[in-house]
């Protein structure tokens, strides 16, 4: 169904090399920004608002996310590209519902993780980054979290690739681990760009750590380590429920699901 067209020219190896380079540059931009922020934070955090760190966090993470999108989006098959807007809407609809309640969770990654499980880590990363960029049309405060969202999509895809969605009890474990990494990476954004968190419930947790004398980044990282792993464990469980509830015909249309036997059950014959 989504096989390559017979009449249109296929991509050249040079273009593939360029995309790989962009992917690596994007990942380096995100990693470099994070390392710089963590190393330089003690001198800067009370240096007044609008400190240089906010700008570095914004530009570094955003540039990395954009590079990842530019590298990955043209390589995805049509069946995946068409699923991305659906995933974005699921993120927004379910995330906005939870974001407005007094729960220290976000649940704003269900669509991203769904695409990652069905179409792989690269598609997951692109969906995460795109989700933040498109969502910022309604809520510009999610824009700086693009890199963290891309990371979560990528990790969810890797979890699916290595069979963690084949056993139902492994999905929350994978979500928990993803949440730890994602939370640690997103904490500098919350600390430097926002000077806090965007929700009242998460803000209360940060306040508790601040009252014990923690620096802002330490307090927000600890809050992220409380909220994010639980949040992502819930998201991964929800996605596992959703993916297994889908008809098998719908899931095996994705080459990633077939090739890596992402879901438990009989492996359908190739090309059947």
């Amino acid at each position: 169904m989504s096989s390559h067209s017979l009449t249109l020219p296929s991509a050249s190896p040079a273009a593939a090399r360029k995309r790989r380079l962009l992917e690596i540059l994007g990942a380096l931009a995100i990693a470099g920004t994070y390392i710089y922020l963590v190393l330089n934070q003690p001198t800067d955090i009370t240096g007044g608002p609008g400190s240089a760190s906010a700008l570095i966090a914004l530009s570094g993470f955003l540039a990395g996310a954009v590079l990842l999108i530019v590298a990955v989006l043209p390589t995805l098959p049509t069946s995946t590209v068409v699923l991305i807007p659906v995933a974005l809407v699921l993120n927004i609809v379910l995330g906005q519902f939870v974001g407005s309640t007094l729960v220290p969770f976000y649940l704003d990654a269900i669509g991203t993780v769904l695409v990652a499980v069905l179409a792989g880590p690269a598609a997951g990363a692109a969906t995460g980054a795109l989700s933040s960029i498109v969502w910022s049309f309604f809520n510009p405060t999610v824009l700086p979290f693009a890199a963290g969202a891309a990371l979560i999509g990528c990790l969810a895809g890797l979890a699916a690739r290595y069979g963690l969605f084949r056993r139902f009890y492994l999905a929350p474990v994978a979500g928990f681990a993803t949440g730890i990494i994602g939370g640690v990476v997103s904490a500098p954004v919350a600390a430097f760009v926002f000077g806090g968190t965007s929700g009242v419930a998460t803000g209360a947790i940060v306040s508790a750590f601040r009252s014990m004398g923690d620096s802002l980044l330490a307090a927000i990282t600890k809050q992220a380590l409380i909220s994010d792993p639980m949040d992502k464990a819930l998201v991964f469980t929800a996605v596992a429920v959703l993916v297994y509830a889908l008809p098998r015909r719908a899931t095996v249309q994705f080459p990633f699901v077939r090739r890596h036997r992402v879901l438990a059950g009989r492996n359908p014959e190739q090309g059947a």
Binding site: S2, S79, V82, L83, L90, V241, L242, A250
Partner: peptide, 17 residues
């Protein structure tokens, strides 16, 4: 969520084709 997501994935497949 289950009816919503199954319908959306189904629609997406039709649209992709």
């Amino acid at each position: 969520a289950v009816p919503l997501v199954s319908a959306l994935v189904e629609d997406a497949a039709t649209r992709a084709a």
